[in-house]
Amino acid sequence: MALTTEQRIRRAAIKLFADKGFHGTGIRDLAQAAKISSASLYHYMGTKEDLLADVMRECLARLLRAARGLTGEDPRDRLAGLVALHVLTHATQPAETRVVDHEVHVLSPTVRRRIVSLRDEYELLWTETISDGIRAGVFQDAEPVVTRLALLDMCNGVTRWYSPRGPLSLEQLATHYARLALRMLGGPENDFSFPVQRAREVVSTVWKRTL
């Protein structure tokens, strides 16, 4: 099915913002990539910042929706699920997640606050999961804030090197990262029962609609 003009512009923006950055992407670049004239481009979008913020908002909203669907009683299973979800999303949607991870600083203060609020809402799920594990005695960590930041940064890095031609399947990669996370928090690396395939299904569902 042919893409609409709006979809072509969005796809072009995601690729260009991911590859060249927001400031490195001009209106003419967007128009050429979307195969429309620069004058016509403004009929389908607001400002370039509006387009960037919309891409970020959509990506974060999907990630948050998926993460909320993985909640469980055992903090170890919840953490394994969050890690698997984050790894799978960054491996399968590298352009979108690269834009979210690296371009938020270019937003104007008002717009940035709205995007950061969504990101904070997502990261709060990680904070609560780690805190619950510490209270339950299944995690041991004197610096949970630093550990959360380290885990997220570790998972974000998947966009830089993951290839489907690599030696590990996506499920194997996500499982390995979940084990690393549990080890970082002082728990046995195999001490979780979360099915990583479930995270893969959730990722596929929330990203099914063409961007």
Rank of each mutant, 00 (worst) to 15 (best):
M1C: 13
A2P: 10
E6R: 14
Q7S: 13
Q7D: 12
R11L: 08
A13L: 08
A13W: 10
I14E: 09
I14W: 03
K15A: 06
F17N: 09
D19S: 13
K20T: 13
I27Q: 10
R28D: 15
A33V: 02
A34S: 15
H43S: 04
H43F: 11
Y44C: 15
G46V: 02
G46N: 05
L51A: 04
A53V: 00
D54F: 15
V55P: 01
R57H: 11
C59V: 06
C59A: 14
L63A: 03
L63I: 13
L64H: 15
A66E: 01
G69H: 10
G69A: 13
G72Y: 07
E73N: 10
D74L: 07
L79S: 05
L79Q: 04
L79E: 03
V83A: 01
A84Y: 02
A84E: 00
L85E: 08
V87A: 02
L88C: 09
H90K: 14
A91Y: 00
E96A: 14
E96Y: 12
E96Q: 15
R98C: 10
V104P: 01
V104S: 06
L107P: 12
S108T: 13
R113T: 04
I115H: 00
I115D: 00
L118W: 08
R119W: 00
D120N: 10
Y122P: 02
L124G: 10
E128A: 12
T129S: 14
I130H: 14
I130V: 15
I130S: 15
D132Y: 14
G133N: 06
F139Y: 13
A142L: 11
E143M: 11
R148P: 13
L149M: 08
L151V: 07
N156R: 15
T159P: 11
R160F: 07
Y162R: 00
S163Y: 04
S163P: 05
P164K: 03
S169H: 00
A174E: 00
T175D: 06
T175P: 05
H176E: 01
H176M: 03
Y177S: 03
Y177I: 02
Y177V: 03
Y177H: 13
A178I: 00
L180M: 09
L180C: 12
A181Y: 01
A181D: 05
L182I: 10
L185H: 15
G186I: 01
G187M: 11
D191I: 01
F192N: 01
P195F: 00
V196C: 00
E201Q: 14
V202G: 10
V202C: 02
S204N: 11
S204L: 07
T205G: 01
K208I: 05
K208F: 08
T210H: 09
